[in-house]
Design a protein around this nucleic acid. Structure first.
Lengths: 349, 349
DNA sequence: CTGAAAGCGCTTACAG
DNA sequence: CTGAAAGCGCTTACAG
């Protein structure tokens, strides 16, 4: 029977095991394992012989069997609410990119912002991955502390959650404060908070950013006006559009908008344009966001950007460290955001 | 020792195995397995006892061990070039969504459009997933046929690739033809193909769409003019912007643009706006794309949309069928695209 | 440098 | 309805 006989002639796919390679070369399974994993010391001639056999037989190691023993899989789970939320998409891209460079596979798991699923991811991916990168949305610090036997995990996002886990967070409150300060410096006096929360407290991204908004007003000696806070059911363009239309309808005066999510800002620009309000002449606009959209919208949108690449790198570093040394002290990294000025705000002349 | 003793008091995380549950209840491992997997027949009282023990001990089945035996993992790999390509992002969202509803986990694996990685994904995810959903970009039909022992896989995207795999493809050529016909019907006579390919042949999304463009011209009795085909290095907004600026600079007359990727169109709109060209008055614009952007750009952008949800559903159906019956005849599904008319093209009055 | 044994945590055939 | 045995394809301690 020729060696090149197609392997698909049987019913089931032929599985080439390590022992088949070992038999072909005339060595033990352990030696093949050593060659395949570059563990231990192996005679160079043996290495070559094994490599040839691996190639000829088309042997591929079974990661399931490997993981069952070694308890490592070379895989990391990235659990985000979804690709459409805040800066999730660019963050995910950065994580994939950086992890790949380190030979780590990334399994993406959307949680939909659901508490149960966030907890489930943390509780255990059941050994299918070595650790978890989670953007917590619904989950509370209390729940995290009560979690039975969680695996290695790093929490990342706008929220800074206390509890047993390492974390990387963007400094959203400080960034919102800076954005409002910029608007006030540029002459604005009534800043609409689009997508904000009227009542203080909470640690959602919106709440954290609302805090910054209030702080900036306080620092500037202005009063917080609830009528300027436009709560939106979600963060879509439609929501932003509707909120501004309503504000214009009620005649509430305003000369600036801080949109807490970028889609809201695009909806707002649309509404302002239709109403004949000049941006930035009559209304200046700033938005949180990382999209290329900002540059190509009309006018170009001034944005507050998270440095997702840095966040991804720090989170991955913390996670690999945690996987290596389980008992390492907990650490937390804060990453600043950056304001990119474009045409929707005045520039200093 | 109290039952509620925290399990984290030891050095390593305590692993609760099936045998621990079995011992606690006083049954065999097989019986626990039966309860956990709802296999076989088990006495109702035993089921309850096992469930209680599972809960109390915090037992979670080890998917690695399970998969090693059963050769199924309940996981599907989604291999796309990246989230920024064409309709990948909404397609991925649809796949995650539909798979979850069926209790299937999805592992997302970006290929970066790299041939090697596309082949690798197909060759074998090594049993870590039951099957693969791949958007092929660089890979050829010849390579696919030569592939040694591939697992179950479905190819999806704009390309319709021959070879041994099931496939779901969007009808890009027909859609491009329809888009150009629409422009001609609305009075356009010189349609720029933005992001097209000057030389025919090939089966990239760009090539397929270019074919449609040529067909529409031929059908209308017009001649194909290479000077109207603007090739772009990539498909970014910058590329679209630069290409239109250049076209305007050379004085090439045109009264319509078909952009083969949506970002190109946004760049084009930007360039036209700056040049004082009215859209759609002087230049009508249509783009391939699925973004919410299209609706909120100024003017609203007429787009050719792929029905990603249908594509995802069909692909998942084909894959699960293939996983069930390995020898099933190969099948291929074509999904039409839809033109959504907005303000960047004239409407019939 | 290499091997034989034990075992990772489960499921798959069998027996009862 | 339940169990004891064998084994999935590897790696982890040992021995030599």
């Amino acid at each position: 029977m020729p060696v090149n006989e197609p392997e698909s002639s049987r019913g089931r796919p032929t599985v080439v095991r390590m022992r088949d390679v070992a038999a072909a070369v005339g060595v033990s399974v352990k030696t093949v394992s050593n060659v395949v994993n570059a563990t231990g010391q192996v005679n160079e001639a043996t290495v070559r012989a094994v490599r040839v056999a691996v190639e000829e037989l088309g042997y591929r190691p079974n990661p399931l069997a490997r993981g069952l023993n070694s308890r490592t899989t070379g895989t990391v789970t990235l659990a985000l609410p979804g690709l459409g939320y805040g800066y999730c998409a660019p963050l995910a891209a950065a994580v994939f990119d950086l992890a790949e460079a380190q030979g780590i596979s990334v399994v993406m798991e959307p949680t939909g912002g659901d508490r149960e699923r966030e907890l489930e991811v943390l509780r255990n991916r059941g050994g299918l991955s070595d650790g978890v990168l989670l953007m917590p949305t619904a989950i509370t610090a209390r729940e995290l502390t009560a979690l039975p036997s969680p695996g290695p995990a790093v929490l990342l996002g706008s929220r800074r959650v206390e509890g047993p886990f390492d974390g990387v967070s963007s400094r959203d409150t400080a960034a919102a404060e800076a954005a409002v300060r910029l608007l006030l410096d540029r002459g604005a006096s009534r800043v609409v908070l689009l997508g904000g929360e009227r009542k203080a407290g909470g640690d959602s991204a919106a709440a954290l950013r609302t805090d910054g908004y209030r702080r900036a007003l306080t620092a500037a000696g202005r009063t917080f006006s609830p009528s300027l806070v436009a709560e939106t059911p979600r963060s879509s363009r439609d929501d932003g559009h509707a909120a501004i239309v309503q504000l214009l309808g009620t005649g509430t005066p305003f000369d600036a908008v801080l949109a807490l999510e970028e889609p809201l800002a695009h909806g707002a620009l649309h509404a302002l344009r239709r109403a004949g309000r000049d941006v930035p002449g009559q209304v200046q606009v700033v938005a949180f966001g990382n999209d290329e959209d900002a540059e190509y919208s009309w006018p170009g949108l001034t944005t507050v950007q998270a440095d997702v690449r840095t966040m991804a790198r720090r989170a991955l570093d913390l996670l690999t460290a945690r996987v290596r040394e389980g008992t390492r002290p907990r650490s937390h990294v804060e990453v600043p955001l950056t304001i990119i000025e474009r045409e929707s705000t005045f520039s200093y002349a």
